[in-house]
Design a protein around this nucleic acid. Structure first.
Lengths: 209, 209
DNA sequence: GTCTATATTGAGATAGAC
DNA sequence: GTCTATCTCAATATAGAC
């Protein structure tokens, strides 16, 4: 399964992919500055010029990792935006799309976290908040639709969006730290339903959904 | 300038604290292994033997940072556990207690995240999952009380606990990345209420809380 | 040119005076 | 409790033999 962007499934792509994977892994495990171009090409099983041909520099491959991920991320968000249906379902689709991407690119996510939270290590600047902002915006948009249509309660849509994001956050965190032993797609869907319906006893019936 | 003898207890504490703060800051910004004892003592305005007197080693001061934080964390959890009242209120207290601690020790939290998500950098082993586990356990305990008493819906208490933790997570994340421009204690309380009552329109009145 | 022996440096850690 | 001065040790850098 050739998942990563770049399209064509040629040999050229194979080297590119191997380089991207090797670099992602090494940057994460040893840090950006501590990783040498030599190590990357060795791990990828290619020679230095191959890296420089495709990415121009160490910084170039780093940017490629981030740009490709961001692009894939935006594609998923856009995909859901075009979808119709009730807001609850759209939220579920959104979370699932992003969650799937998250799982597909767990190693990149680790790298992002390492750079974002870790010491700066001379890594090129990259605005990681874009991910969060784009996600937030998408969630908020759907929440607003839901409020407007009466599907959701009246209230601060911003707060609702945050709660949904928190739900996503806890599901991803479990995957990150307990590697594969998280609650998965289905667990995430369950949590979302819980958030929509509320934890507290509402006095009457428990909504089916 | 150097007041010898009559070493008042407050002087002692001052040096210790300054060392802890300096080390926390440097470990976070530059990484554990990249930070030298020299830098720490210089930043704290003391000399090397002071560090070795209080903490025994570089690893010692690192452990002290973590141990003190963990202890403070457990104290807060215990404090809430002894409290009575409805589960919803207890959850709120719990989140607020932990959130306050989080804000008080933002710099330590940054360090924990940096070590947890970043490259290992030779930092001493420390089981950061203890924080999460203890927190999870406390939340779960309260959720179970709530379900038992009929205050909360019947259902997977584990899921409910996760949703509550996600709510906490998103509030803290905002403080971490937008430094001081987060939603604060009150925002967190709002989010919790939302989670308890649900986002979706329930058919009847909106619960007052 | 390469190899081995010897500085040099900078790290964590300590001794003993005050 | 804190200081000055010093130690041990490893990684690196360099010199000079071969």
């Amino acid at each position: 399964m050739r998942s990563t962007a770049a399209g064509a499934a040629h040999e050229e792509t194979a080297a590119k992919e191997k380089l991207l994977n090797a670099a992602t892994d090494l940057f994460t495990r040893r840090g950006y500055s501590a990783t040498s171009v030599r190590e990357i090409v060795a791990a990828a099983g290619v020679t230095k010029p191959v890296l420089y041909y495709h990415f121009g520099s160490k910084e170039g491959i780093y940017r490629a990792i981030m740009d490709l991920t961001q692009e894939a991320f935006n594609v998923r968000l856009e995909k859901v935006r075009r979808r119709g249906g009730p807001a609850g379902k759209k939220l579920q689709s959104l979370l699932e799309e992003v969650f799937d991407l998250f799982l597909e690119r767990l190693s990149v996510v680790r790298l992002i976290f390492a750079i974002y939270y870790g010491p700066h290590q001379g890594a090129p600047d990259f605005d990681f908040n874009q991910f969060d902002e784009a996600f937030r915006k998408s969630v908020l948009e759907i929440v607003r639709e839901g409020v407007k249509s009466g599907e959701f309660r009246k209230g601060r849509a911003e707060d609702m969006a945050l709660v949904v994001m928190g739900t996503f956050s806890v599901a991803t965190e479990l995957e990150l730290s307990h590697a594969g032993r998280g609650i998965g797609r289905n667990g995430l869907a369950r949590l979302l339903r819980l958030v929509l319906n509320g934890i507290a006893y509402q006095g009457g019936k428990v909504r089916a959904q």
